[in-house]
Design a binder for these strands. Structure first.
Lengths: 144, 144
DNA sequence: GTATGTGCAAACTTTTTGCACTTCG
DNA sequence: CGAAGTGCAAAAAGTTTGCACATAC
């Protein structure tokens, strides 16, 4: 994701292009493992030491509202953010509090087929997201 | 859910039976729509006015850890608790901010079959939860 | 120029913690 | 009796808010 592309996204969303917004979006794309507001603040403090915490939250809210990023909820009550906006699923390990993306077109097709037959009464389905809870195996884990 | 059954559950989990724990579990079963810690505190304040906030959180943690209840994540960052511990899914409508339970054994079997064949590399699956986003149809909706 | 965005600090909400005291088994 | 649980109050953690100032367009 280039700076040019990020600017384009902001423009398309009718959001003014500011250094803070660029830095925050860049941080989200670089830290592509569902950073929290805190992770983002730490990251941009190095290049933009004077960015205020309140601003980061305001910018994140604006980005979410304009569909440039998404909020991701986990079992503990800290909001994570996700720069990938097309539909995908999440693997979540509560032991390490780690979230990874999981994409599976075959699964999506299976689910679509299942629900287009069956439906849910009194409900119009727009999007189906799986949260797959479990444990990452050692080999893919974070070294201590 | 009778008091007797609740006591049995606590016993099976090797948790001591205390008035606070009984009150909190009863509250969760009565307030069966995903109460928050705050909802639970309000509820039990009437019968047990001296229960401390810290105790409620400690009890809830112990119950979650011992699988007597579950945490539920929602859009705002407040933890909700759920007395239904067998696996179930959630229907969520962002327009009305309403969450409803969705249970579907056929679906669970389908998913189990799918993932037991396919697996996910470097990940041990413990639980699969769907969040189905969409809109409740008028007939089942909340009147404005 | 003006609407929009930012910095700052204070406050708010939810949750956690430590320790003395109490209770369950 | 001893281990486990509770009450309390203080404080951590995460997030929101209001307002004066600054900036993008």
């Amino acid at each position: 994701m280039t700076v040019r592309e990020i600017k384009e996204k902001l423009k398309n969303a009718d959001l003014k292009i500011t250094p803070q917004r660029l830095a925050i979006l860049e941080a989200i794309y670089k830290l592509n493992n569902h950073p929290t507001a805190d992770n983002i603040i730490d990251y941009i403090k190095e290049t933009h030491p004077s960015v205020a915490v309140g601003t980061v939250y305001k910018v994140l809210d604006a980005l979410v509202e304009n569909h440039l990023i998404k909020k991701v909820k986990t079992e503990n009550n800290v909001t994570h953010y996700d720069g990938i906006i097309y539909n995908h699923h999440h693997l979540y390990c509560s032991e390490s509090d780690r979230i990874e993306d999981y994409m599976d077109e075959e699964l999506d097709e299976l689910l679509e087929k299942y629900f287009s037959n069956k439906g849910i009464k009194n409900f119009n389905i727009e999007e189906i997201k799986l949260q797959i809870n479990g444990r990452f195996k050692k080999r893919g884990g974070i070294k201590k």
